[in-house]
Design a protein around this nucleic acid. Structure first.
Lengths: 225, 225
DNA sequence: ATTTTGAGAGAGAACGTTCGCTCTTTTCAG
DNA sequence: CTGAAAAGAGCGAACGTTCTCTCTCAAAAT
């Protein structure tokens, strides 16, 4: 981390380059990230309620007085972590547009997301966020927002695929979307990858399930009996 | 849990009627149930960590001193609630054997389970238990035990259906079972019913998904092209 | 010189748990 | 059956700990 590579200008900053940040703001942002990283570690290990502010301070190598300059409360850290995590989820899944066929793109994005969550060991954080969302309005709103965006994304995706003839003219999109989301969330919570189920088998079964409710127009030749 | 529950009888107890209980033991059991019911309500509302012993005492209309005669710690109440909930889950799902066809029995049991969890508003408790199981060894062991029993049940069910010709001779039972469980757990966590998706549609999609990976031998006539 | 950052003691509240006590029920010798 | 003793159930104040968050003051940056 090179914290002083930017030249410091002692007069007005150029309006045409709004990306430039003062060294001060830069440091502040770095500290914020440091706190969030520490908090995430603690939350993974002990849960939102179980992790204490002292624990987070120790992990961030920072005093409470310093930490409270960046976040006004523990609650606000929880919200920030939830928001960050859900945004990451959405970004992973937004890749579903890229693929030879819509189904391929969807499966690839979902599988990549599973792998990502598993590798970064975020299954417990995800479950913690969902549990918290059941009784914490702010976290619930955060989840609802991300979910709405995903539903919009996925619905548009299906609508386009349908109009394009890539999937059957399925009518129950409003029911299919929550069911597919439930499958995905269940697989993350249960950490199916971590339980030793081979990734290829996961993908095969996932594809069979998705196919069964989207029913691609092109029938496989296996039914020619 | 090692409290002495043996009642002392000054003559031989009737072996043919072991159901008989002293009035004392009966009251004790009733109080235990009262505490567990109160605790469950509090945990649903505030989570395991968020609910305080005072809160539980108030809900159970009992003083701390009295409550601690029945449970040695808050931790033991959490474990008892988790155990109870998971056992209920298993009992619901054990009904899968009853049905015209294996697939019908399976779908019926799963749907009944969804309805049960939704009506009793237990989705958040379930999610809380799964989150807790990620960092609490006792709760994790409880979940693992119930899960192992379910896997055994479901695997035997599929093996029997396969041998009987009711489903295709599918080979990946070890991968299918966790995937189906993930779907079920995701649907409970997401409370698909509560989000307004009509139950008939849920059942249709669930059946399509299950069929796609079990592939009943009897083909529907819709493919007669 | 002024503002920002940080340390860390500790305030004040809430937590899980315990203790001493009272009241009720059961036991059992006389 | 009677009455004393033991055991169990229940209460609620209080304990020691831990929690989140604040305050003061010094160092650092600008």
């Amino acid at each position: 981390m090179d914290y002083d590579s930017n030249h410091t200008s002692n007069h007005a900053e150029p309006v045409s380059a709004p990306v430039e940040k003062g060294a001060r703001a830069e440091k502040r942002e770095a500290q914020t990230i440091r706190i969030l990283d520490a908090a995430r570690n603690c939350f993974v290990q002990s849960g939102f309620r179980g992790a204490s502010m002292n624990e987070i301070c120790r992990e961030a190598a920072m005093s409470p007085g310093a930490l409270y300059r960046y976040f006004p409360s523990k609650e606000s850290i929880i919200e920030a972590i939830a928001e960050q995590d859900r945004r990451q989820d959405l970004m992973n899944l937004a890749q579903m547009g890229a693929g030879a066929t819509p189904l391929d793109g969807f499966i690839a994005a979902v599988m990549q997301h599973f792998r990502d969550v598993h590798e970064r060991d975020m299954a417990s954080l995800f479950t913690e966020i969902r549990a918290e969302s059941m009784r914490n309005d702010a976290v619930a709103a955060c989840c609802a927002k991300t979910e709405a965006q995903f539903i919009e994304l996925f619905t548009a995706f299906l609508t386009y695929a349908k109009a394009n003839g890539d999937i059957d003219p399925v009518e129950d999109i409003d029911a299919i979307v929550p069911m597919m989301m439930a499958l995905g969330e269940g697989m993350i919570m249960g950490d199916v990858i971590g339980r030793g189920v081979p990734i290829e088998k996961i993908e095969t079964i996932l594809r069979a399930m998705a196919t069964s409710i989207l029913r691609p127009v092109k029938k496989q030749p296996e039914n020619a009996g």
